[in-house]
Design a protein around this nucleic acid. Structure first.
Length: 420
DNA sequence: TCTGGGGTCCTAGGACCC
DNA sequence: TCTGGGGTCCTAGGACCC
């Protein structure tokens, strides 16, 4: 076990909001929120009123009447997020990016070049501030979990290093809600057992956490509470699923509503899979109702697929069946499509699937070949002229209302390293 | 008449096989 | 014929993270 604190966790502060304040000086020092119906990010001035990411826009305005909503400069978020990560990469290749604005780095191998981990963290913060104009907080510790907690403690715009000989003194007084893996539901359950701090959790009798939270979660939290975090920095990730969803507002639960949306979602998912030479066997759809409850239906095929039309047809059948099971639900607010059980599939082998017992989709049939050719043609046109050059006519009608594609792309995780 | 969009992992029950 | 255990896969739902 390493005895040095060599793991850094760097996290840009209130990232989207900070970018907006950087781009527009009039917004500096003011409570702002990026988003509209939902707050995607809130400035620290807005957070002081209780505004948080993920909150409904209406509630945010109630909490903070002078809140300024700003539209998203999504391209700038991507550019500046990438630039901040590039600063970390100047020190070490062992960087694990968690999201657009957050990454771990293992500096074990580069201290002889750049000084102590604290020196490196200080320099990273200085460069991001000077070169990009953005505040970034950094935690330094011996493990990933502790480094992440340290960066949260450091916010806003700070640096916290946890001395390896005083880890539990740092960790145990903190509230359980700060632990990675404790969300609102788990926090409520723990509070009900008078477990308020991470120290309380560490002291919980053996087996009690497992009974309360299930075997996996109980064991994991107990390990983290004693700072037994074995996870290493992983520079490569392989996605296990790919999906797309669309919020609809409140719409009748009818085919006329969901049928036009599904080709659009299928197109987004399948084209991303094809671009990474991947395909998947399990197709899952989700339908959300007016009260935010949602149901899923899935099917696992014998053969992985990455074909837009076939995915859309299967998704439609699944949504139809899901709604048939809930005839009393008259309003839907969201549909989602995702593909999992992914596997490598070189483009030339992108076979057409069997659909749901559908003979005409078999590989080698005339329709199968036609679908394969249609996807290849669309992919080729987009490669040359951009994503908007060609699309599904019905799907494009839906664009006016939906979230910008630029935002969707921000949220996408890379499916893998390989390009076709 | 505004609660987004992209993911990961876990659990429980049932089917099926050995 | 009755009875049992273990493993794997699939489905549906849920919690959590950014």
């Amino acid at each position: 076990m390493a005895t040095e604190a060599n793991i850094l966790h760097a996290d840009l502060d209130a990232f989207y909001a900070s970018v907006e304040q950087l781009l527009n000086p009039d917004l500096r020092g003011k409570p702002i929120a990026v988003g509209g119906g939902v707050v995607l990010a809130a400035s620290y001035e807005a957070k002081a009123f209780g505004v948080k990411g993920g909150m409904a826009g209406r509630k945010a305005r109630e909490l903070c009447p002078h809140l300024i909503f700003v539209g998203g400069n999504f391209g700038e978020y991507q550019r500046l997020g990438d630039a901040a990560i590039a600063v970390l990469n100047d020190f070490t290749p062992l960087v694990e990016r968690i999201s657009i604005d957050e990454a771990f780095a293992d500096v074990t191998g580069c201290t002889h070049l750049f000084g102590s981990p604290i020196d490196i963290a200080t320099e990273i913060r200085r460069r991001v501030r000077d070169q990009l104009g953005l505040p970034i907080s950094v935690g330094v510790a011996r493990t990933k979990h502790l480094a992440k907690i340290a960066s949260q403690v450091a916010k806003p715009d700070g640096l916290v290093a946890v001395d390896p000989s005083h880890e539990l003194e740092f960790l145990h007084p903190l509230p359980v809600g700060m632990m990675w893996g404790v969300g609102p539901v788990t926090e409520t359950k723990l509070h009900a057992q008078a477990i308020l701090t991470i120290g309380d959790l560490a002291q919980a009798p053996g087996g009690s956490l497992e009974r309360l939270l299930g075997p996996a979660a109980g064991e994991k939290l107990a390990a983290l509470a004693w700072n037994r975090d074995k996870r290493e920095i992983r520079t490569q990730h392989r996605a296990r699923s790919a999906g797309a969803q669309s919020a609809l507002g409140r719409k009748p639960a009818t085919e006329a509503v969901y049928k036009p949306v599904l080709p659009h979602l299928a197109d987004r998912v399948a084209s991303r899979l094809r671009a990474k030479a991947r395909a998947g066997r399990t197709i899952t759809v989700r339908v959300r109702f007016a009260d935010m409850r949602s149901i899923t239906r899935s099917v696992t095929l014998d053969v992985p697929i990455a074909t837009t039309t076939t995915l859309a047809e299967i998704a439609e059948e699944l949504v139809r069946s899901a709604l048939a099971d809930h005839p009393c639900e008259r309003v839907i607010t969201l549909v989602a499509v995702s593909v999992s059980h992914l596997r490598e599939q070189a483009a030339i082998q992108l076979d057409l699937p069997l659909g749901l017992g559908d003979e005409k989709n078999r590989p080698g049939t005339r329709q199968g070949i036609a679908r394969f050719s249609a996807d290849r043609a669309i992919d080729a046109v987009r490669a040359r002229f951009g994503r908007d050059a060609v699309g599904y006519a019905i799907a494009q009608l839906d664009r006016a209302r939906s979230v910008p594609d630029a935002f969707r792309e921000l949220a996408e995780k890379d499916l893998g390293e390989r390009d076709v």
